[in-house]
Amino acid sequence: MRKALKLGLFLCIVAGIAGLAIAYVNDLTQPLIEQQMEAKKLNSFQEVYPEIEEVKDESEQYLNSNTDPLLTEVHVIYQANTPVGVIYMVEPSGYNGKIQLLVGADILDKKITAIKVLSQSETPGLGSQATESFFRSRFQGKSMGKQLEIVTKEPVEENQVLAITSATITSQAVTGGVNVVRQHFLDNFGG
């Protein structure tokens, strides 16, 4: 019995020392990690909305049980204290799981400023091309007025978007996400 206690105590001491060391390093690295995540977020925000003076996370205000569950975050961009743009985080389902998508929209023009795929698990080389600029640019400047639709031939209408070759499902998922954003945008930021 005494031996068991001794061994248990030894294990506790080892675990205690390990725990303390980790806690110490955690204190050192945690601020750095948070800083980096913040910087990364701001960077990706700037990619979908070029000039950001001030941005506020207003997800709680704009998202509730009635809004589309695909929408996860709403950030409003202010310029001289008036809202000028919105950045949405939306998570449509692609070919192989969720796609995390940022969509920037301008309140004045009612146009999409840009989109960006944050994370995806689509087929490498096919659906994963959704992250590349050639596909992203197909959404740039599209009007919020009309439902976007994906086409496989050269688009003729303003609201048509050319799909990625052999990755129609992924293209449709991204467009679906943008359309969800569009609906919410029209309902909340003037139609």
Partner: peptide, 8 residues
């Protein structure tokens, strides 16, 4: 932790 901080 170190990797997350320095090589994210």
């Amino acid at each position: 932790m170190l990797m997350q901080a320095y090589l994210p």
